[in-house]
Write a protein that binds this DNA or RNA. Structure first.
Length: 417
RNA sequence: GCGGGCGUGGUGAAGUGGUUAACACACUGGAUUGUGGCUCCAGCACGCAUGGGUUCGAUCCCCAUCGCUCGCCCCA
């Protein structure tokens, strides 16, 4: 259909835009207070950036990217997430040279070729944050706190914060092997999905919804018992910072992140009533990514929030304030002559900074009054033959229904005052 | 990529194998001479996602396609 937006995409109509601006306003305000500055990167990047940054074997890279050759024969990909691009920009513009710690945030469209369902779209919007250059667990905690405060600022309730540590290159492979050893004999009992997870990402077996797999995983080693000293200590500190800040969380040793670049801290915030796609925010530390992309080894933490999901949750909890927009004035014109004069008045009102409307279709006065009402106009400014002859405008207060005649040259000031 | 549900006007939504496809909201017009919000009246689907098929005849039956939706995978 020519008149249909592509699958998985949505138009945001004027009424909807109000809501987006509301949410974006909260983001900007909060990021400003936390010291994160906005960055805007291209909607597309070289395909290799995502292949390297996200990981060749991840689902995102393997089957979800919008990739095409441009007319120059280069492989281009619509960004499926923004961390890799933010890091690319960080390196390209040498932001590390300006400050030891670079704190960035972004809001924008991401693209993933997935089957759409509730809370999942092919073009969706994320608000994300990246803190580059600092290894301190305090930054992990700050990031998590920022995510929590953001959701709170929208009035969202009943969210759950889960945290975990997924280790680092020193301890994760060891744990991974332990886990594979554990499942080796149980392989036949696992579901098809889990059998393929065994090779690709054995940690995923732990949160399989299949009951059989679940019972087979009882007694499996947990990553938090296998962390190296550095990771364990880091994790403890993150937890104590969060506790100090009064942020409630639950430790979920089975929490896994889908993207290869995560190290140490991983976290996720859920709103269960959303259903299958209940994760509204996810993030963590990715100390290896900057180097992977070609920079010097640089510690980093970040998260992304799925804005559609957040707004879905807000709708469920009825959290959008009523934002009524109204005009200051609606100019009502009677007759052809008055129409010209009315247009002139309309322009004057607008030039004076007022919000003004009028009818262009030459409808009846009654109809124009209805339009004034619908436009939520504070005043109707009526211009007809009588007014024209007397050099006045009839000023009608739409709320009180009182009206008076005001000299034409006084009218703008009258409204301004 | 796989599985389930659905697809009637701008919106919500009735409905039947056979003349004019309910109703509500929205929208437009009107209820004597230049005035809104309440009320009343009227108008508003060349047509029931699209393309085939079955039938004397289909919006209602069958098939396909597309779309929406929910779930799996995965993710925000």
């Amino acid at each position: 259909m020519l008149t249909q937006a592509p699958r998985g995409t949505k138009d945001i109509l004027p009424d909807g835009v109000e809501r987006w601006r509301y949410v974006e306003g909260k983001i900007r305000d909060l990021c400003d207070r936390f010291g994160y500055r906005e960055i805007r990167t291209p909607l597309f990047e070289h395909t290799e950036l995502f292949q390297r940054g996200i990981g060749d074997t991840t689902d995102v890279v393997e089957k979800e990217m919008y990739t095409f050759l441009d007319r120059g024969g280069r492989s281009i990909t619509l960004r499926p997430e923004n961390t890799a691009a933010a890091v690319r920009a960080y390196l390209e513009h040498k932001l590390y040279a300006e400050d030891a710690l670079t704190k960035l945030f972004y809001i924008g469209s991401m693209f993933r070729f997935d089957r759409p369902q509730k809370g999942r779209f092919r073009e969706f919007h994320q608000f994300g944050v990246e803190a580059l250059g600092e290894a301190s667990p305090a930054v992990d905690a700050e990031i998590i706190l920022l995510a929590v405060r953001f959701l709170e600022s929208l009035g969202l309730k009943e969210l759950s914060l889960s945290i975990n540590s997924v280790g680092d290159p020193a301890c994760r492979p060891v744990y991974r092997q332990k886990l594979k050893d554990f499942f080796k004999e149980k392989l036949d009992g696992l579901c098809d999905d889990c059998r393929s997870r065994y090779d690709r990402n054995p940690m995923r077996i732990l949160d399989c919804k299949n009951e059989r797999c679940h019972s087979l995983s009882v007694g499996a080693p947990e990553i938090t018992d296998c962390l190296c000293d550095e990771c364990a200590e880091h994790f403890e500190k993150v937890k104590s910072y969060l506790t100090a800040a009064g942020v409630p969380f639950i430790c979920d040793p089975r929490l896994v992140r889908g993207l290869d670049y995560y190290t140490k801290t991983a976290f996720e915030i859920k709103y269960e009533p959303l259903g299958a796609q209940s994760a509204v925010a996810g993030g963590g530390r990715y100390d290896g990514l900057v180097e992977e992309i070609g920079g010097a080894p640089t510690p980093a933490v970040g998260f992304a929030v799925g804005l559609e999901r957040v707004m879905l949750a807000m709708e469920m909890q009825n959290l959008f304030p009523e934002m009524e927009e109204g005009a200051d004035a609606f100019v009502v014109a009677m007759g052809d002559e008055a129409k010209g004069a009315a247009f002139c008045l309309l322009a004057e009102l607008r030039d004076a900074g007022l919000s003004a409307r009028m009818d262009y279709a030459g409808r009846s006065m009654k109809s124009q009054m209805k339009q004034a009402d619908k436009a939520n106009a504070r005043y109707a400014l009526i211009l007809g033959e009588d007014e024209l002859a007397k050099g006045v405008v009839t000023l009608r207060d739409m709320e009180s229904s009182g009206q008076e005649q005001v000299a034409r040259e006084e009218i703008v000031n009258k409204l301004l005052g």
